[in-house]
């Protein structure tokens, strides 16, 4: 398990987040306007989103000023394990329908465990086998979820 480290340029990232939020707010407001604001008595589909978009712009502007004025330190996870976790979930999503619950679970557990350091094969195999049996018993036979054990 790696330790987090403080990243350089955290302040720029903080500013970037505020700018992204501002851009989302502006886009949201413009699209909301396109849906029609309606009248005061019968407000349109765009009225509430329009108000929300304006509020998001205002809030993100205040956050932007805050980010410009103050420094921030962040404790960030190392990128490789984070990427491995994301890949593990994507692999599960790609495999579960064509190959079934057990192969998808095995691949996810292997990649997920690898994210935390070298795999200890004996203990990992036992945990994976127990998880597969448990998931099939609980979700397929217990809750009758529409998964297949193997194959699509």
């Amino acid at each position: 398990m790696g330790n987090g480290k403080q990243i350089r340029g955290a302040q720029y990232a903080d500013i970037a987040i505020a700018l992204v939020l501002l851009a989302i707010g502006l886009g949201f407001t413009i699209i909301a306007y396109g849906h029609g604001l309606g009248s005061m008595r019968r407000i349109g589909a765009g009225a509430m989103p329009f108000l929300i978009g304006c509020a998001l712009c205002l809030c993100s502007l205040i956050c932007l000023f805050g980010a410009l004025r103050s420094r921030i330190e962040v404790d960030v996870s190392p990128p490789l394990p984070v990427a491995l976790v994301l890949i593990a979930v994507v692999a599960w999503a790609l495999m579960v329908e064509p190959f079934g619950l057990v192969p998808a679970t095995v691949v996810l557990m292997l990649i997920g465990t690898f994210a935390y350091g070298p795999i200890r094969w004996v203990s990992t195999s036992i945990v994976i086998a127990a998880m597969c049996v448990g998931c099939v018993a609980l979700f397929i036979y217990g809750f009758r979820l529409p998964f297949t054990i193997f194959g699509g």
Partner: peptide, 29 residues
């Protein structure tokens, strides 16, 4: 290294099972 991969399996199954939607798994990610 044991706890979190198990949690990952549960979150994937949990989100997928609501609407049988892979799209929801990507949204979760």
């Amino acid at each position: 290294r044991i706890l979190y991969p198990i949690m990952l399996v549960f979150v994937c199954i949990g989100v997928y099972s609501i609407r049988n939607s892979i799209f929801d798994v990507y949204m979760m990610l």
